[in-house]
Every structure is written in C-alpha cells, then in structure tokens.
Design a protein around this nucleic acid. Structure first.
Length: 989
RNA sequence: GCCCCCGUAGCCCAAUCGGCAGAGGCAGGCGACUUAAAAUCGCUCGAGUGAGGGUUCGAGUCCCUCCGGGGGUACCA
C-alpha cells in the first residue's frame, strides 16, 4: 500500500508518502516557530489591538472539547477537526482574524475508569493520553493557536470552573426582574435577595412573619437554599451502584440504565447538589429560535424541556382519614385539555402522591363498589386500606424499567373516595394507578376517557363511564366513542351553571374555561415543564472539588474567591467504592471522604468570624462542568483576574447586527461562537448545560453574548465494516478478503480461508476494525488523509471508512504536484502563457464554486471541482501558471502542506496561510455559446448552440424552425415553454 | 406506538430555483510503461433515482400511500 519504496531513481521528485512526510514535518515546524495561527486579542493580558486592527472581521471557530482517550485516535475522530481547520484556513485567506484552538476535557468518569483499569493515577494516564493525542493532531497539520490550549484538570483552569460555581451558588432567579432586552426574569446576586428579606420588601416564604434577623444562621441558609441557582436538596436521585455515583437525568437512558457503562440505575433519596436549570426553561426553549442549529437538535432540546401550556384545576374532595378527616381539600391536577373538563369522569393519583393516605377510608368499600376496582390482589381486596397499601407496595418495588416493559396494560385501585368535578358538580371516583407519574405535573390527573387514549383504556378496563365532549361536528354530538377522540372539533355536552362551552372550538374553549374558572379561583392557566433540575454532584475522585465547606451547624459556606483554586488532593486510593451493580440498597461513598486531613479544616472565610472548624464538601463536579465554559477560556486563557476579559468576549463572541438565517423577524442576534462542529450525542447534555451557564453569566453581567454557540453544525460519523467468524468473534478487518457475488448477490468474505460475516457500525479496538491516523500518515501523508476525509461525502452524514479508496486522494495530489514539478528533475514546469478561453472560464467558475462550497461546508463538492480543474490542466500537457497558482491557493485550506510547498516552489515567499484567496471575475465566467436543450413534450429531442444572452422570442423562433421540431408539430402547437438560454419545451397538439 | 431524517451506478457520493440523471472518487474492464509485478498514466463500462399513485409542458427534486435504513422519544396528562 505504501509507495515509500517506489521512489525510483528516475522520479526522485515524485510526490510520494515519503515526500509528503518530509514536506509536512518541515512546514509544521515552521508554522510552530512562526506562530502562524496565533490570533491577536483586542484586550486582556495578550492585547495586541494594532494587530487586530490590521486584520479583517473576527471569526471564532470551535470543535467539541475532546476527551483524551487511552487508546489514541482512530480515523473517525479528526473528521470535525479537519473540517473546522479547512473553514478556518479559508477564512484566514479571506482576511479574517480567525480564532481556532483546542483543549482537553480531561476530568470525569472515562479518564478515571481508564486509570483504575491500568492501576495508575488518573493524572498520569490523562497526561500521557493528552501527549499522544497532541502528537497525532500536530501531525495532521491543524492550524490551532497553540498558545490557547489547556486542560480542565489544570488548577489554573478549574480555579475558574470553581469560581463560576460560586457565582451560580451566590445567585437566585428573579422571575419578575426586567432584562435589558425587555423580557422578564434574570439571575441576580443572592445578596440582593438577602437585602429584600432584611428590609421586609420581600416576605419570608411559608407565611413566616418573623424578621430576617430573627432567623438563625441555619434557618436563613435554609430559606436561601430555596432560591439559590446551585443548592443542595434531599430528593429522589439516580443512584448507579455500578459506577458508584449518582447521575443526572440526562445521563440515564430511557431503559433506566447509565448512558456510560449501561449499568442499572435506581431511584434513591439522597442529599445532592442541584442546579436550578428549570428557572431557565423558557429562555432555553425560546432562544433556540435565535441560533442557527440543525432543526433536529432544536427539536430534541425542546422535547427535553417539554414545555406545555394548560391549566391547574382544583377538584374538591372530602378527606376520609387522618387528622383532618371530614374536612374538604383540593386535589390539584395539571391538564393541557381544560376544554374537556366536562368529560372528566374519574381521577387518578400516582401511587406516591402524598394525598393518597388521607383519601382511603377506614372500614369497608363504599356501597356498590365494582369488584374490579378493589385491586388485582384478592387477599388484599377486603378493604380499601389493604388494597391501596398492596398496590402502592407493588408499585414501589417496580423499577422504572418494569413499569415501562409492562406496557400499556393499565392497573389501579379505587381509593374509596370521590372528588367533585368542579364544573358538573358530579362525584367522580379517585383511583391510584401507576400510569400517572409523581414526577410530572402535580402527580394527579383528571381522567377524560372520551378524549385521552390512556384514560380510555383505563375506563374500558374498569367499567367507568365515557362521555363525549368533543365532536368533529355538532351533528355528531352523541356519536358513540369506540376510541378516544383526540382530534380537533367542536365542544358538546359541556354546559352547566358554571360554564357553557357548547359550540366552541377546542382552542376557544380552553381560553373560555380557564377565564371562567380563574374568576372562581378553581383553576389557573399555567405552563408545565418536563425538564428537572440538574443533578450536579458525583461521588468520584477525578473531578473538580466543590469550593464549599460546612460549619459545625451544617450551614453551607462558599470559599472566598481568593482561596481558589481548591486543589484536588493526592490520595492513596482514588478508586470509587465499588458495588454490585444490582445492589439498590448500597449508598454512595465519595473517595474524598476517605481523606480526613483534607476534609476537616480550620479556615478563616473572611466573614469577620475568624478561624473556625469546617468540613469540606466531598462530592466532586461532573465532567460537564469543565466543558460548560471552556470555549470562553480560549478567548483569554492567560487572564488571571477574570474568566475572560469583557473586551475579548465582546470581540470574539459578541452579537452581530443581523440575526442568523431563518430566525423570526425582529430577532436580536444572540452572539456566540461563529461555528461549532461536533457530534449530535451531546444534543441535550453538554449543549443544554453550556447554554444554561452562559445565560447565568450573561445575566450576572460577565458576558455580552446570550448564547454560547451561534451556529452549530452536527457532523456525521465515520463508521466501518467489522467481521465476525462463525463463533461470533471479531477478526481483523484489514485482513479480510472480499469475493464478489454473482449478479444480484451479496459479496462474500473470508479471513484466513474461513468464511466471515460483515457488519457495519462504529470503529473500535474491540471490533478489530480500527485504523489510526498514524497508519494514514505513514502510507499517504497527512494531506492525502485530509483530502480523503473531506471528499468522502457531506460533512453531516455518516459514511463508511474505506482504506483502499484513500489512494484516489493521493492520485489527485500527485497530479497537481506533477503539473508544477517535474518528477525527474524537480524543476518547476509551469508556463507563463495565459490559459485559453475555455480554461479561463472553467477557472473562474471553479473559483466561484469553491468559494461557495467552502463557505457552506460542502468540502466534498469543492474538492470535486478542483479535481476537475486539475484534470483539465493535466490534459493540456503544460500548465498555465495563472491556473496552477489559483489551484494551489484553493487547495491550501484542505491540503495546506503541499500547497505551501508548491507555492514556495512557484516563487512566492510568505506562505499560503494568509495569501489572498482567488477571486472570481464574473465577466470571465460568461461563455460565448451555451447548449440549449430542446424538449418535445418534456423529452429531450434536440440541442442547439446559442448565445448566452439570446432573447426568449429569438430562441422560440429558432427552435420552432428546426427540422425535428417541425416534424413533431405538424398537427399544431399547444404551447411552448422557453427558459432562455438553456431550455425550450415544445408541446404539440 | 408517535416524531424527525435518509433511500440516485457494485460502493462512497453530485445534480444549488421543478428544466439534458453524472461532477468527483473507489472498484471493474481495456491499453501504455515494465523481463514481470506494484505504483503511475490514458481510455472505458456502468443506474433511470426504494415501490406505487398524483400535481405539472416537464419530477431525483413538490404531494399522498407503502417498503427499507438511521436517529429521537415513549403512559409527560
């Protein structure tokens, strides 16, 4: 495969892999020495305003933060980096000041797991991995500003991660505060909330009438906890014994397992750090309109946030048990269909609903209770208390997985109580059933079997009346319902002395009933969200320590900013306490809790109370923390007084005067990174968390931009074939031989003579189909590898790696090389003669096409156009300098090393990195003749050469006079469609 | 089940506004170079666009139904 050995004595100057390597290494050294890709900053410690002024508009290009894997890169990993590098280099040649840098996301579970597996300290393995990855990427010739690199594990970086945590901790969300843009709601310093409590402007929550100063420290802390954007809370969380840590909702699959490692996850009540991302739910959903992202990812985020408009409605009920037995209270439900309130014939509470106990009467069932309502457990069905207790116990023992896998078969038990439908006044039975979830809405529903599929199933199974309140038309008001009718229509059977909705449309009825019931204080229009607060603590070693201590009363204190960073201590045993993955009753044990000399400290927090004893927080942050803001640090990595100088943030990420394409009219641009490229797997994790932090920092006045990523492009993956033998074991894919099948048959595959079976999917060491970039550098060189990856197809689609196809990219570069350099003598062989008309036209058309393609990230078609142009030049035998130089500049973003070399051999000093990109001359694109296609009834029947500026009338006449057209139109002409100059379609009678 | 995306040559992919189905690459075939092979170079073969229907003068492109592949989501009231 390598032609390293094929450089014969006759062609010592051929562009071989060896030649490519020599060229590439020497230019990489030169770029590094000269700091070619360093981007000047307008402000901060590196301020070079003169250099900034000397360049054109800024452009901030970003790749998703890589995690330095222990096994090194495979050929799929650099795809996005090459794409962003091509885009960056293209824009440098257009004169823009381009910032492109790469750092490392080095904290977190994978790094720690790799260290545990190899029995080494995570810092050691992580640093080794980063060294290897840096080497692999440097060899690829990426034009990063290497001054701007860092890793999340650097104390000088995580100092600021901890600082941001403190800003969030010391903030609350004031939903009534007016933002500069006129919207409502923003984060404010917690001190301003304390001031409101102190002055009495804001009453204490829960009807507490004491003055703020009368509260103890612990009581004050408790109150503030209810407001802080980062807070501890005792709540049901996702405990994963197999990983020894808790996980956020976003890290748990819908099968109820950990996204990483696929271990079972259990719900446990534990005290954990949370981030109040729910406060930002509206803005996170609304502002998706303002960014240029793939629609698919926007939809995924909107679904995750899960905003739905509806109403909270109170259903009165008389308590049947408990201290307040006999008194009346309300069961509050959330519904998106208040228009169907008249059709609510029963209610359902989640098994965990706190009201259940007081709804179940002592003694027997109410007279006439349907046997089906008493529960599936015959032994427990004698009394409501026994039946409900049995049902709740059974439900509590079910995992989320079991609840789901049991499918749609509805189960439930009657509580023995009836509530009152507030609009009909009718008593309706209240059930406990596990198809209602405590975690959504109020954990209780009004069930409308006529117009909700789940309620219909339940009503059918338990013989509950079904009432139609929506019909396709008034005529069908009493048509029987064979299924829940969920379509649009007109409201029927919905009148009482409370309200009359009959005849209204669904949307009108919703508005009407909410208005009526709000007046009576029975309901209120409301918005409900699916998103929950973000669980932020992990019981692992390899993460940022929280800058938090607890005093002897258990009150939370933030470390003063001057005491940051709080460094991660070196510990003898950094591995997590391991558990049986299925042991739901295990409890997390953070490794840091095993270091008492670090945990128990005496500190002066600078609060005037002197040195006191404290206990440190022993949880660590999730690896999302470091990746939530790294893009900001690239802008000003050496700044030790701020996360980023405001001048740098405004310059690199500030808002543009015009909004992104496709934004609604009147939209204000949110600013942010100009191009962000990465895989879609972080659609609701990293991309949502980073947006949240960015908005908090914006609210607190640290950032001008409102979004982190103005344009996000989701790249496809490079995948590969893998092969298994008869036992299902993977065999080395590189050694498999393909045998073509007969016509219409699949090919067959053998390895070492035995038949093997092909599958398609991810690249991985364990699948034995991994190809490393290093192998490509050795066999072809980095430029060939770059050209191949960029020419495989559109950046956004996934496509299969095919090593044997890489040679096509090499042949192209060889042909380009040969057009400039004589393989035998090394002499430059271009001619100074001007290209002919046809080649000139092709050149300028190519320039225009390549510019457009690069701008729109269509690198595959740009390369195809360059191959075409190069092929035209090759056919001439001798290459005109004008065309060759333009080609060298145009290929430079994709294949920068060979371009530098050829550019220099063509007699230019100064390099191609900042050479101006060729400009198309529109006057030279115009051809003297164009081919006009003549269609008869839509089928191509003739062609004619015409002038490009021929008029429609001239062309029509010309075409109608042609023999073939006259022959076809002897019976007359129905119509003639003229699209001058390229097409005429004649339709005969 | 629901929602979204994608089906063009043996394979990866072009066709930008509804206007000649083919730009580019791989593989295959033939030829040149070679003692021979590899590499290289030149030439060349190759689909009617997943299936069916519709709109249109004209459909890969727009609409409907179905089939196949991928992704998201799943009792979210």
């Amino acid at each position: 495969m390598s032609d390293r050995t094929t450089t014969s004595n006759e062609t010592p100057f051929r562009y071989t892999a060896q030649m490519a390597q020599d060229i590439e290494l020497s230019w990489q050294d030169r770029w590094e020495e000269e700091g070619t890709f360093n981007a000047p900053n307008p402000a901060g410690p590196w301020a070079e305003p003169d250099k900034v002024a000397a360049r054109g508009e800024k452009l901030c290009v970003l790749d998703m933060f890589p995690y330095p894997s222990g096994v090194g890169l495979h050929v799929g990993h650099p795809l996005g980096y090459i794409a962003t590098d091509v885009y960056s280099r293209f824009h440098r040649m257009l004169g823009r000041n381009v910032l492109h840098a790469l750092g490392y996301d080095a904290f977190g579970l994978p790094a720690e797991q790799y260290a545990v597996q190899t029995g080494q300290h995570p810092r050691k393995t992580t640093e080794e991995n980063m060294t290897n990855m840096r080497r692999q990427l440097r060899r690829l010739g990426l034009g990063f500003d290497n001054r701007r690199t860092f890793a999340t594990i650097d104390p000088e970086y995580y100092r600021w991660t901890q600082w941001i945590f403190l800003q969030i901790f010391n903030s609350w969300y004031d939903a009534d505060a007016v933002r500069p843009d006129g919207g409502l709601g923003r984060a404010r310093p917690i001190a301003e909330l304390v001031a409101q409590f102190e002055s009495g402007e804001r009453p204490l929550p829960g009807g507490d009438t004491r003055a703020w100063a009368q509260l103890s420290d612990a009581e004050q802390a408790k109150v503030l906890e209810g407001y802080r954007l980062a807070y501890t809370s005792e709540a049901p969380v996702n405990w994963c014994p197999g990983l020894g840590t808790v996980l956020s909702n976003e890290e748990v699959t819908n099968e109820g397992r950990s996204e990483r490692g696929n271990f079972p996850v259990f719900r446990r009540n534990l005290s954990q750090w949370m981030m109040r991302i729910t406060a930002y739910a509206d803005r996170l959903a609304d502002d998706l309109d303002r960014v240029d992202w793939p629609e698919k990812v926007k939809v995924m985020q909107r679904n995750w946030i899960g905003r739905s408009a509806g109403a909270r409605v109170a259903f009165p009920v008389t308590l049947a048990a408990g201290e307040r037995a006999g008194s009346t209270t309300d069961i509050e439900v959330f519904t998106t269909r208040p228009d169907t309130l008249f059709g609510a014939t029963f209610m359902v509470l989640a098994p965990e609903h706190p009201l259940v106990d007081s709804l179940v009467p002592e003694g027997g069932w109410p007279d006439g209770t349907h046997d089906d309502w008493k529960g599936a457990d015959a032994e427990a069905s004698a009394t409501p208390q026994a039946a409900v207790a049995a049902y709740r116990l059974a439900a509590s023992r079910k995992s989320d997985v079991e609840r789901q896998t049991e499918g749609k078969d509805k189960t439930g038990v009657f509580t023995g109580s009836f509530a009152t439908n507030p609009v009909t006044g009718q008593p309706i039975p209240v059930f406990v059933a596990d198809y209602v979830l405590m975690g959504y809405g109020t954990g209780a529903i009004m069930a409308v079997p006529g117009h909700d599929e789940r309620d219909f199933e339940y009503a059918t199974k338990f013989s509950i009346p079904v009432v139609r309140v929506v019909a396709p038309s008034l005529d069908e008001a009493d048509a029987p319902l064979a299924d829940a009718y969920v379509g649009d229509g007109v409201i029927v059977n919905s009148a009482s002395d409370v309200a009359d909705l009959n005849g209204l449309g669904v949307e009108e009825a919703k508005a009407r009933i909410i208005a009526e019931l709000e007046e009576r204080e029975i309901a209120e229009g409301t918005i409900n969200y699916r998103i929950r607060d973000w669980l932020f603590s992990r019981q692992r070693y390899w993460g940022e320590p929280f800058p938090i201590v607890y005093d002897e009363d258990g009150v939370v204190h933030a470390l003063p900013e001057e005491q940051l960073p709080l460094t991660l201590p070196d510990v003898p045993d950094y591995s997590p306490k391991t558990f049986d993955p299925d042991d739901a009753n295990s409890s997390p044990e953070p490794p840091l809790s095993r270091v008492p000399e670090w945990v128990e400290v005496e500190l002066d927090l600078g609060d005037g109370r002197g040195r006191r004893r404290f206990r440190r927080e022993t949880n660590t942050m999730p690896n999302w923390a470091g990746s939530c803001w790294y893009y900001l640090r690239y802008l000003d990595p050496a700044n030790d007084t701020a996360i980023v100088d405001p001048g740098n943030e405004r310059y690199w990420m500030g808002t543009w005067p015009t909004p992104v394409a496709g934004a609604p009219a009147g939209t204000k641009d949110p600013g942010g990174v100009d191009l962000y490229v990465g895989g879609v797997e972080h659609a609701v994790l990293h991309l949502l968390y980073a947006r949240f932090w960015h908005k908090v920092l914006h609210d607190l006045g640290y950032l001008e931009s409102e979004e982190p990523f103005r344009k996000y492009f989701s790249q496809g993956y490079i995948q590969a074939y893998a092969y298994t033998d008869a036992r299902g074991q993977y065999v080395p894919a590189a050694e498999v031989e393909e045998h073509p099948g007969g016509p219409g048959e699949e090919p067959t595959f053998t390895w070492g003579g035995q038949q093997v079976f092909r599958e398609y999917g991810k690249i991985g060491k364990s699948l034995k189909n991994s190809v490393s970039p290093d192998e490509m550098y050795d066999a072809y060189g980095a430029d060939t590898f770059r050209v191949y990856e960029m020419s495989m197809g559109p950046l956004e689609v996934s496509k299969p790696w095919e090593t044997r196809a890489v040679v096509g990219a090499q042949r192209f570069l060889q042909r380009l090389w040969r057009n400039v350099v004589d393989e035998a003598t090394g002499e430059v062989v271009v001619t100074d003669d001007a290209p002919d008309q046809a080649l000139t036209t092709q050149l300028h058309r190519t320039i225009q096409g390549v510019r457009d393609d690069f701008e729109d990230l269509r690198f595959n078609t740009a390369i195809a156009k360059l191959i075409e142009l190069n092929n035209s030049v090759t056919k001439l035998g001798v290459a005109p300098r004008e065309v060759v130089e333009a080609m060298v500049l145009m290929i430079a973003p994709v294949a920068p090393h060979i371009a530098e070399e050829l550019w220099s051999r063509l007699g230019h000093s100064g390099g191609v990195a900042y050479a101006p990109f060729p400009e198309a001359d529109p006057s030279k694109i115009v051809e003297e003749q164009v081919t006009c296609v003549i269609q008869i009834k839509g089928k191509v029947r003739d062609r004619v050469e015409v002038a490009p500026d021929i008029s429609e009338d001239e062309l029509r006449e010309l075409v109608l006079a042609r023999d073939k057209v006259r022959a076809a139109t002897q019976d007359g002409i129905r119509t003639v469609i003229v699209r001058a100059p390229k097409l005429v379609n004649v339709v005969p009678m």
